[in-house]
Design a binder for these strands. Structure first.
Lengths: 273, 273
DNA sequence: CGGCTACTTGAAGGATTTCAACGTAGGTGG
DNA sequence: CCACCTACGTTGAAATCCTTCAAGTAGCCG
């Protein structure tokens, strides 16, 4: 059904090919570095790797979760569809993000996840993750932190929809994407490859695609952003400061910070002491 | 500074006074019953109990988390404040809910929590919770489930702000509160004590208090709800079905049951019709 | 070339906000 | 016990933001 990545590797001799790519470890390092034995333990947990084309469903609302995925490349989108056919996007899923982590405590999904671009990812068996949570408290805490950070981003998104103007919402999304991509080293300076259509942005920020268009043109005409279509669509943030100001952006919610001391101490004592 | 509940207990003789009230266990039972040894283990973890009056801050954005709380009675609100002074409420915190669970993996809060009514709660030390996660995997999973459910409610809230009309948003909030209160047995039939001002509702659903007023009057005039002020403010849902229809409400996101709502409706219609 | 998708622009309409009053209930101090 | 004060709720009218409707452009792929 779904084929593994067809890289022409000579047998199984490649000893430590990384199944979970570097973006995950860059992101998680904000919380705690995952290195050495821990990293190889996590790598050995990878059951398989996968690829999907754009517009492919990875999780479906109302259906059982599949394996948990860690994105290695490509973008996906998590959303709910309403009775009238309109949809609301919760968040854009970037390399290094988990997909379907709720499967550890819920059997059926209440949202959809679909790829936007071609994607590659590592698959982790749910039972292995649950077992890991008992044996490796630091990794358990790291997963808990990923969840908490995602929830924080969701809250900021809610704040946008509830209390910010159309211009602010669009600007805010663009700054957030820039910052998240910079963290995983997928931005080049203040620009990044931009796979989102204006309709996707609209479904995220609660506007019509038409109005998103007007807001982006306004940002462009004021010299805050620029857009180039070739060779691939790319967004350039011309003035990060002014874009942040236009968005009412505060970066605290992204938690570019460290693990609290007490958590580190507790975990170290449990393990070594 | 903060006094313990002044109940005139005769010394320490009361052996097993429940520090975490019943609402928490009713809610969590949807996921897994916490009974016997597990329940008493959790009860022994309670470091102390506390009370606060209305409009009291329990968590402050930008400051370190205090102990983790489990609400025993009263309502609180979790929100962020924007630069211009407006605020966005993420969720209303009811009896049985945790406060400050993120303290397990983050040291500084990025949101405020404040009481709406007088509240009572149990305090749990963060270190004890972290230790518990390693020794009691079922309790760890239960906490993980609480987080996942809260995130799911937040997503539905986001969907309201992004894609529903003012009338739908208000109706949706009222149905959600009814359902959550029924789960913890704090509703009486289809009515419940309503401590929220229209301004609080407005800050939750992203409208002005004036427009919330108009929407509530519309719901009242159409016979969907009724409001009585004495002896305490109380909201009566006169027609749950029609209120749910007006809200575009689907209860899957609350994770009450294994059975999706459309299935249950189909069964009820088949029986009653 | 035709058909598709995404993007762009203008004008009219509608939903929600803003501004401005007024009502009502509870609490406080004279 | 009444006068005043404050917080919350209620209503109307004007202004604004965003949507809807309509039309047209640009690039891509068969």
């Amino acid at each position: 059904m779904m084929r593994h990545q067809g890289a022409a590797l000579p047998g199984k001799s490649a000893p430590d090919r990384h199944a979970i790519g570097p973006h995950f470890f860059r992101k998680i390092a904000v919380f705690a570095p995952i290195e050495g034995a821990e990293q190889s333990f996590l790598q050995r947990l990878v059951a398989s790797e996968g690829n999907v084309p754009p517009d492919h469903h990875l999780v479906r609302a109302g259906e059982e979760y599949g394996p948990i995925l860690v994105v290695n490349s490509g973008w996906a989108v998590r959303y709910r569809t309403l009775a009238d056919g309109s949809r609301q996007i919760a968040n854009f899923i970037l390399p290094g993000d988990f997909i379907g982590l709720n499967a550890t405590v819920m059997s059926v999904s209440d949202y959809d996840v679909a790829s936007i671009t071609p994607m590659s990812f590592a698959r982790l068996r749910i039972d292995d993750i649950i077992a890991m949570m008992e044996t490796h408290p630091r990794l358990c805490a790291a997963i808990f932190w990923c969840n908490a950070r995602e929830e924080s981003i969701l809250f900021e998104h809610l704040t946008s929809l509830g209390r910010r103007s159309a211009l602010e919402r669009v600007a805010h999304l663009l700054v957030e994407l820039l910052r998240r991509l910079q963290l995983i080293e997928l931005a080049e300076g203040d620009s990044f490859v931009m796979p989102l259509t204006q309709q996707l942005i609209a479904d995220s920020v609660g506007l019509t695609a038409i109005h998103v268009n007007r807001m982006m043109r306004a940002l462009e005409q004021n010299g805050l952003i620029a857009y180039s279509r070739h060779p691939v669509p790319r967004l350039h943030v011309r003035d990060v400061r002014r874009l942040e100001a236009a968005a009412g952006f505060e970066d605290g919610y992204l938690h570019f910070t460290e693990m609290p001391m007490r958590t580190r101490r507790a975990i170290e004592n449990a393990n070594g002491g």
